[in-house]
Design a protein around this nucleic acid. Structure first.
Lengths: 354, 354
DNA sequence: CTGAAAGCGCTTACAG
DNA sequence: CTGAAAGCGCTTACAG
């Protein structure tokens, strides 16, 4: 392992040939026994002997040799922009479960880590280390796409649609935003703002669309001042909320597109002396174990992120490369009501009407 | 890639032989040109021709073939218990940077994911997919250890010491806890409690030791009632803080061993009607971008997690397998003072004395 | 049916 | 010095 000191040879691992010799059969027989080749005719007694040798010698297949021979690796890669985003923890969990269930290894890497330029990870992928790729966030740059096409490497966009690509698995972000709006409408709100995500983010666009559709459905007017792009960060939420609080006629409720931004929004409201939910209700998309512990605890729309990871792996593994995959995960989306949402203040109607 | 439909053969990728043919040289020459073999004597003109063919054919080395030949993979694995713990995001970031800088790929996996039993990932590792392993959390169970020894696979414990293992890279948790105590002592606190982590966690033990040492250093008595084991979760913090608030003679400050637990502790204080920092100050170990946005914002000891990841990779790659590695990362540890810590309430001296 | 052989794509010791 | 050949450890089509 050491770049220097090549010595210290690792104890040699048992090979198929070792097992064959030990059991007195050909290596091909061992291989077939281990892969349960239905064609193989072998006496039970011999099979037992082979298996005993395998376990006695501690034989484990050599992935490199198998992969060289079969041109498959049994590994799929998942690239995410940032391990710090808790959304991905759940996605990874589902993806790992699905990969494991199918006998694949899932390796996760970050496409934006310090020092890891896209080229770095492309080099790795181009070397045939994975059979397919799940790409979240902005991982599919034009350069990456070109390389994937060149390598003929199957891939699927995860939680992201992209112009010109017909291979993605996403959540029903429209519905999620709609649920948030519906909840606020039921509480009696009529002036509902939206802290949308960054302009470039495709999830943000779909949530925005869901917000607008739900407003329309409820017969509420759409005020463009009430929709503000905000980064998916606490700072983004602070900036957006601060702007909303400066409006002549303030919203009585805000649908925030992202949990981190919602934390910032709560902070900004507090800083401006605006009571939540007394003066303004806040609902966020994506729940988190922390939501319960914020002040006030945060009403959130829970998304089926594990299911998203699971479905993405399943689709990647079960489709031929050139098939289109355009799937919206149908897992349960539900609003978890907590303290940050309540009926609008008594005076708000009048205020809005003036 | 598809388990069914094997057809749809991927376009064949260029091999060394293709490049050699294209450039009119032997494959071995191509290999040597690409690896910059200093022994190789070749005319500049020929070298250019080879390189041109490489780029024209889009040749990329086949990792499986290289790995089979060299018995090395150029990959190291990092196993963490849980992607949802934000501490690991920073560690991964540092580890990826270090691995990339050394020409290695870092693949990250979770040892505790649903469905991924230890055996599952052991099988994968045993197949020779990585040259070495970084293990965080509880990943090194006795079974795992036995297997690693059997496979002669180099590994290093990350952020964890373990009885009987002399291969680890950890942070200076004692110092971190000490800084937290020192900060509170400077503010005038004399009754400083500790929400220690779970009994089994080695980081918890070291933080506890640092807490005790700092108390002693400050000449403060150690009250066993003031040290309470608490899970590294918001719920753990709630339970621990609730217990502390019931003490006859309450602490005026609490050093919490973990950020998630600190969030729970703040919640519990609020629920009990105890003002932070008015009645009790809270300091946590590990900073987070969220600390700023909690109510009150949370004083935290910032740890060099990226450096931990970086060092672990460096040590794993530069040591021979049987060398002992016992390293405490020396990166900067610093206390970030925010609103959750303040001088003790005026009456506290009297109260403590009664 | 079954065993022996070919060959996946590399790297590098070695014969010339 | 340099090119050709061996061989890493598998799997599987195929000859017998």
């Amino acid at each position: 392992m050491s770049p220097r000191g090549s010595g210290q040879a690792r104890q040699r691992r048992a090979t198929l040939a070792d097992v064959g010799r030990h059991a007195g059969v050909d290596t091909s027989v061992v291989s077939r026994v281990l892969s349960n080749d239905p064609i193989l005719n072998i006496r039970d007694e011999t099979r037992e002997r082979v298996l005993a040798s395998v376990s006695e010698l501690g034989y484990v297949v050599n992935a490199a040799a198998r992969s060289l021979r079969t041109a498959r690796t049994g590994t799929i890669g998942l690239f995410i922009p940032d391990f710090a985003n808790p959304v991905y923890a759940e996605i990874i969990s589902g993806a790992e479960a699905a990969a494991t269930a199918r006998g694949y290894a899932l390796v996760t890497g970050s496409s934006g880590a310090s020092g890891a330029t896209p080229q770095t990870y492309l080099d790795l992928l181009g070397q045939g280390r994975v059979d397919g790729l799940l790409l979240a966030g902005d991982a599919l740059t034009p350069a990456v796409r070109k390389a994937l096409d060149e390598f003929n490497l199957p891939y699927l966009l995860l939680n992201r649609k992209m112009r010109g690509s017909h291979r993605f698995v996403v959540l029903d972000d429209e519905k999620a935003a709609g649920l948030a709006v519906d909840h606020l409408v039921e509480l009696g709100h009529t002036r509902i703002a939206h802290l949308a995500g960054p302009a470039g983010a495709d999830t943000a666009q779909r949530r925005r669309a869901g917000y607008l559709a739900a407003l329309k459905q409820a017969g509420l007017p759409h005020d463009p001042d009430m929709v503000i792009a905000a980064d998916y960060t606490p700072e983004g939420g602070v900036a957006g909320m601060t702007q909303l609080m400066k409006l002549r006629s303030r919203p009585t409720a805000v649908v925030v597109s992202n949990f981190a931004a919602a934390i910032g929004a709560l902070g900004a409201a507090r800083a401006s002396g605006v009571s939540v939910p007394g003066e303004v209700s806040v609902v966020t998309i994506h729940d988190s174990p922390l939501a319960e512990f914020l002040v006030p605890s945060l009403t959130a729309v829970r998304m089926p992120l594990e299911e998203l990871g699971r479905r993405a792996v399943d689709r990647l593994l079960s489709r031929r490369f050139d098939d289109a995959v355009e799937e919206v995960v149908t897992g349960p989306i539900e609003l978890v009501a907590r303290r940050s949402s309540a009926p609008p203040p008594a005076g708000s109607k009048r205020k809005a009407a003036k």
